[in-house]
Design a protein around this nucleic acid. Sequence first.
DNA 1: TACTTTTGCTAACACTGTTAACTAATTAAG
DNA 2: CTTAATTAGTTAACAGTGTTAGCAAAAGTA
Lengths: 200, 200
Amino acid sequence: MGVSERKQRQHEELRNQIIECSREIVEEEGWANLSIRKIADAIEYSVPVIYKHFENKEAITAYFVQEGFQNLLNEVLAHIDSNASIEDRFQQLGMGYYHFAEKFPKHYEVMFGLGIPTCESARNVESINQLSGIFRSMIKELSHKNPNKEIDQCLKYRTLWSLLHGVVAFELLALPGVNPVCSAKALEDVVDGYVKSILF
Amino acid sequence: MGVSERKQRQHEELRNQIIECSREIVEEEGWANLSIRKIADAIEYSVPVIYKHFENKEAITAYFVQEGFQNLLNEVLAHIDSNASIEDRFQQLGMGYYHFAEKFPKHYEVMFGLGIPTCESARNVESINQLSGIFRSMIKELSHKNPNKEIDQCLKYRTLWSLLHGVVAFELLALPGVNPVCSAKALEDVVDGYVKSILF
DNA sequence: TACTTTTGCTAACACTGTTAACTAATTAAG
DNA sequence: CTTAATTAGTTAACAGTGTTAGCAAAAGTA
């Protein structure tokens, strides 16, 4: 037959077109200007067709949240050299995180935007759990280097992510009065302080 | 006459009503559900009346950004005991920042929300400059305690704000997989590391 | 009293997300 | 091969959004 296969292929192709057109719109006009009608226009289909592929608009943004966390995971993994010292690996982790945000700022926006209902869609994303695992194991390893100090690893896990997010969010916010110091430098500084806070 | 005075008073009263009704709506339904028509309904006037008091909807949110930074400044000032040591004052600053976000989460959202066009409206807010001044002078003072180390104060200013924002943003995002460690504790931890990164 | 200004309204325009109802094309069954 | 069933895709509507033009009524001024 092959006919139903072709149909399914075409169905998936259309889904991809929705995704790619959405990506372009967001890239050029930002999340606020992404609309179902614009997508429909871009894929040259009528509006209701989109609802055959995505339950609603939020499901489209949720896709990008998912994709974003996958990219974040890949970027972090790509930056970590498992032969390096644990201290260096923390810097590498930071740089991976930073480079992700630099490469995919729109993804970062929708992943971590405050007040946007996409926070919900971050739940049940497998990549987060993997990232979480990397973070925690590195913290554990670093903690072992300083057996004298009682270290709350749960707390440290949270602060690590806070630090990373803080630096990156500031870069994206471009708050007034803040000189354009290189964010990578700021992140290096912050991670350095973080590592020291565990070691000393 | 006093008649034009009364008119102006009534005009200002209506403006206040717009603000207070907006505050209530945002408190109960969030920023996404704040609409001109809902405000008009609440103040029991027709829609165009609102445009006599605010140029557009963004001007309303801009008002809250302004108010937010004023509150943030007040909260920070209230927490800092000028007789305390510089190390303690950094902790106090952090706590002031944190308590502001705790008391006014909706303000924090609109002040620092990513991707929301209100970032623009943060420019030209006088309170930011005052806050900025406090941050910088404290960094300067702490740096003097360690004359051996060459400290990039511009960088430290940026990282300080990143740290504060990072912790608070995480609290508000309530990201999955992150145990509900007390944010105040996380902030204390972070500020401690920050101070040490300057002193040692 | 007549004129002018202010005040506030209705109604519209151009958008938004979402869905019900319909048509046309395609597929499967008799 | 024709008929029935399914699917694909459409139009048109509903309810909501921000914003504004045009008008009526009220209030203030001469």
